[in-house]
Design a protein around this nucleic acid. Structure first.
Lengths: 202, 202
DNA sequence: GCGCGTCGGTGACTTAGTCACCAAGCGCGC
DNA sequence: GCGCGCTTGGTGACTAAGTCACCGACGCGC
């Protein structure tokens, strides 16, 4: 459709599991994702990890945006959850496009705004929602079409910013209530409607 | 210095305590603050309030930015903490300036980026810092030149996204350790260095 | 000086998080 | 196909934080 996007943009391709950036890394450019998913997470000094957000095609990595706007280093970690394809736009080219291309500007702004709304939701649920509702929400959000969630209890704990033991115990309660079935590395949702109620806070 | 900034901008002036916006309000324009301070906070269904951030001159209200970028309604509450002076830039004019004025664009971007970094800090401390360290941090951040913090325990609880009773008890512990002195509506810092240690997590 | 609204203190209880440890599942090399 | 070691999950015991209910103390207006 569009011609080669610009002189400066470089193709980006990497396999699942690639660490795209770590805290204190310098930002090498703005990522326009065509395919795949990037998980951005924060790890506290105590070793607790929390997933801040995921970047999908059409989305924007706020971390990257922040780094480019303020000339700072990254403060979180970004990992390719799946194989990635896209473009890496170097800082100067990014700046030029923001000035010259209203569509590009609108895309970036909208994505930043959207990301911010997610963030607000995260703050709200960290500050006031129960583990039960946050876990129910995370399960619903990350289930595949068959209702399976392929995550360890540890990974689920990172999704909701809690601890593994807490997740294990809450999952055990869900299992006793026949809302889910548990197996190693997998949670199967049995009662989606009931979980939605829990996610909404009963 | 600059001539009247634009055809569209309207002067903004209001006294302390004014509610600038509430959840579900439509955004009437972009605020450029010349003087004063706006507190933006979220109140959960359970009635728990948490202060998201404060807007100072040169800063940007992310809420407003989000609303303008996505054409959405506000999701938080904004209150004038002090008397405000500034300009209100209507949406169309805001859009025009973003396109035409690189300095304006840079200002907005930098401010948004900065705000986002604060937000990340908020998420990190909600997810993993103790009440003791969050309260110590809040006290240090909001003390005046004499080391007085003129906030009720309730207001301090909103600052750190916790409950009044929890704040009262932690303040009592600080008082027993001679780190602060308590009186009605005021906390006086007695040992700033020790509080800084607590804020950093010992 | 009385009444009332705000502010702060406290006990009793629930929920969440931490720590230490163990057991089951699984892949791998031999 | 046996044993080894890593990952994952389960559990008890404890601490920290949050909730609920209630009361007392202060401060202001009448």
């Amino acid at each position: 459709m569009t011609p080669p996007l610009s002189s400066g943009a470089r193709p980006l391709a990497c396999p699942a599991g690639t660490v795209l950036f770590r805290p204190d890394d310098v930002c090498s450019g703005f990522v326009m994702l065509a395919e795949g998913c990037i998980r951005v997470s924060l790890t506290s000094p105590g070793g607790r990890e929390i997933v801040l957000y995921r970047v999908h095609p059409g989305g924007v990595c706020l971390q990257t945006f922040t780094c480019l706007a303020e000339g700072r280093v990254y403060s979180a970690e970004g990992i390719a959850e799946t194989e990635l394809k896209g473009e890496l736009i170097p800082p100067a080219e990014y700046e030029r496009r923001l000035a010259a291309d209203p569509d590009f500007r609108r895309t970036v702004f909208t994505a930043v705004a959207h990301r911010f709304a997610d963030f607000e939701h995260l703050v709200e649920s960290l500050a006031s929602a129960s583990i039960e509702s946050r876990l129910a929400e995370a399960l619903l959000a990350r289930a595949d079409a068959r209702g399976d969630v392929h995550l360890t209890h540890d990974a689920l704990a990172a999704e909701i910013g809690s601890a593994r033991e807490v997740v294990s115990r809450q999952l055990a309660r869900f299992e006793r209530a026949r809302l889910v079935a548990l197996s190693r590395g997998k949670v199967t949702l049995l009662a989606v409607a009931a979980l939605k109620q829990k996610a909404a806070g009963q």
